[in-house]
Design a protein around this nucleic acid. Structure first.
Length: 499
RNA sequence: GGGUUGCUAGCUCAGUCGGUAGAGCAUCUGACUUUUAAUCAGGUGGUCACAGGUUCGAUUCCUGUGCAACCCA
């Protein structure tokens, strides 16, 4: 294949010319050499020599080998300046005809912005003081056949940025930074949990029974076994099986798949951290979550107070904690506790808020609908909301004093739910009963209700120690830390309809 | 699912009250051995998203489709 012409669909004059240049290069020998080895990155050179005086550098005569993509090309006759970009940043190179030789220089003048080059030369400073590499030799390593976007305005078309992320990453520094931050967030969380003796595990992505959350799954098919399989909607039930098995502190950072609509907050596949902690409850979890998020924000951004979406966030001070009902009354003071705890009155409140209620919903579900309508989007600063009704928490442990609610919380910041955690239900008989209720709901037409997972019940029957577990949406956390309005901005390759 | 907006050169954008289009960057030719979005002179480049309709004539007006962004449910 390497000697084949690349088929190009949308050919234009510039592409045709570049293909001709590549064809000439093929005739001269190896068009795609892979024997150049660099010894320096742009940023390393800047860090090491940026502060030195012009004369100091001349004395030093530091020789470097750099490589990267040509981003700017300023030809001034018998000498040129090019700016190349590598994984660390950009550096300028000064290419003189008398330094690289007539033949190379004439060839070099035909190279294009976007081409990938290797340069050997000396670190120096120009008269204007810009740190540069004075080329003693320069080679074309990869011919680029497609012109890059405008060197000044870059690529701003959202669709192209998502569909051709490679181009976005070449020209938009901010996009590169977003994904560097994303990587640092995951690393910070991993370091934090490992330092507290959590074990990282990998559990199946393909489930026979999709469980651990309420959502519609993607379905696939195993040919050899001739059976349906589901892409997981959550790893929860497998991680808790591991706690039964004695892995008392486990976590997994991986993809979940939910067969739902697309929006600025939803992608069919998204990344979740889930972790389980034996001999702990939801209060311990909130403390741990607070410490982990504070550590993550501080490690990644270097500070605990930051701006995002026009708001100032403070992850340094203690996170607020309140119950679902307290949150409703805080943000809608005319609603009383009495109205929220009486089924008929709560339904009246919901009706006034123009919420659409199903007849089958109990008081707990109605309360949550009201909460989501009046409070959720107002929870800007980091806040834990507790005391979720059992009706909407099929996997959470009931509260000892009030069996109507569970020992559960959700964590909010920026008006978005970022985490969900609770003391786990470890009563096998109670869990079996709740699965049955879910199956009844499914039979009644709720296609987000859960299946009955008999093996999970069997695992619980061996005994799940008292345990707390939590899931944190990594994409939404990264959105907050990178000031991104859409989940697509924090996914390298977001789901798009076919072109 | 409903609504609004957008789709014009490789990129970023103008524009045509209906007479088939412009700018900057990129590209091409020429000048230039310390430039900084280099500069200067001169060129090339477009099924105006797609398909219909109205019209003497549609990129422009109308309808539909596709993709995208935003808002609502």
């Amino acid at each position: 294949m390497s000697n084949q012409e690349t088929p190009v669909v949308d050919v234009n004059e510039q592409i045709t010319l570049r293909k001709q240049k590549l064809a000439d290069k093929r005739k001269q020998g190896i068009a795609f050499p892979n024997d150049f080895r660099r010894d320096s990155l742009a940023e390393e050179i800047a860090t090491e020599y940026g502060d030195k005086e012009k004369s100091e550098l001349e004395e030093l005569g530091k020789k470097v080998k750099v490589a990267g993509r040509i981003m700017l090309f300023r030809n001034m006759g018998k000498a040129s300046f090019i700016t190349i970009q590598d994984m660390s940043g950009r550096i300028q190179s000064y290419v003189r005809k008398d330094a690289v030789g007539d033949e190379v220089y004439e060839d070099f003048k035909t190279w294009d912005i976007g081409d990938i080059v290797g340069i050997e030369g000396t670190v120096f400073k120009t008269n204007k003081g810009e740190l540069s590499v004075k080329a003693s030799s320069i080679r074309l390593l990869t011919k680029s056949l497609r012109p890059l976007p405008d060197k000044w305005s870059g690529l701003s078309d959202q669709e192209t940025r998502y569909r051709q992320r490679y181009v976005d990453l070449i020209v938009n520094q901010q996009s590169r930074e977003t994904f560097i931050i994303r990587s640092r967030v995951v690393k910070a969380i991993r370091d934090f949990l490992e330092s507290r003796d959590f074990l990282e595990v990998e559990t199946p992505m393909m489930h026979v029974i999709p469980g651990g959350a309420s959502a519609r799954p993607f379905e696939t098919h195993h040919n050899a076994l001739d059976m349906p399989l589901y892409l997981r909607i959550a790893p929860e039930l497998y991680l808790k099986r591991l706690v039964v098995g004695g892995l008392e502190k486990v976590f997994e950072i991986n993809r979940n798949f939910r067969n739902e609509g697309l929006s600025t907050r939803h992608n069919p596949e998204f990344t979740m951290l889930e972790f389980y902690w034996a001999y702990a409850d939801y209060n311990d979890l909130m403390d741990l979550t607070e410490a982990m998020l504070r550590y993550t924000v501080e490690t990644v951004l270097g500070k605990t107070v930051f701006e995002s979406g026009g708001e100032t966030y403070n992850f340094g001070k203690p996170f607020e904690r309140m119950t679902v009902l307290e949150a409703i009354m805080k943000y809608q003071p005319e609603i009383t506790l009495e109205q929220l705890t009486d089924m008929d009155k709560a339904r009246e409140v919901a009706k006034r808020l123009k919420l659409k209620l199903e007849d089958s919903w109990g008081l707990g579900r109605v309360q949550i609908e009201i909460f989501e309508e009046v409070a959720e989007h107002k929870l800007i600063q980091p806040t834990f909301i507790t005391a979720y009704p059992a009706e909407v928490s099929p996997l959470a442990r009931r509260n000892d004093e009030d069996p109507f609610i569970t020992d559960r919380f959700e964590f909010f910041a920026g008006g978005r739910e970022l985490a969900n955690g609770f003391s786990e239900l470890n009563d096998a008989e109670d869990q079996a009963q709740r699965f049955k209720e879910q199956v009844e709901a499914k039979d009644a037409g709720d296609d987000e209700a859960m299946h009955y997972d008999a093996d999970y019940i069997r695992a619980l029957e061996y005994g799940l120690p008292p345990t707390a577990g939590e899931g944190i949406g990594i994409d939404r956390l990264v959105m907050l830390l990178t000031d991104s309005l859409s989940i697509r901005d924090v996914l390298l390759f977001p789901h798009m309809r076919p072109e």
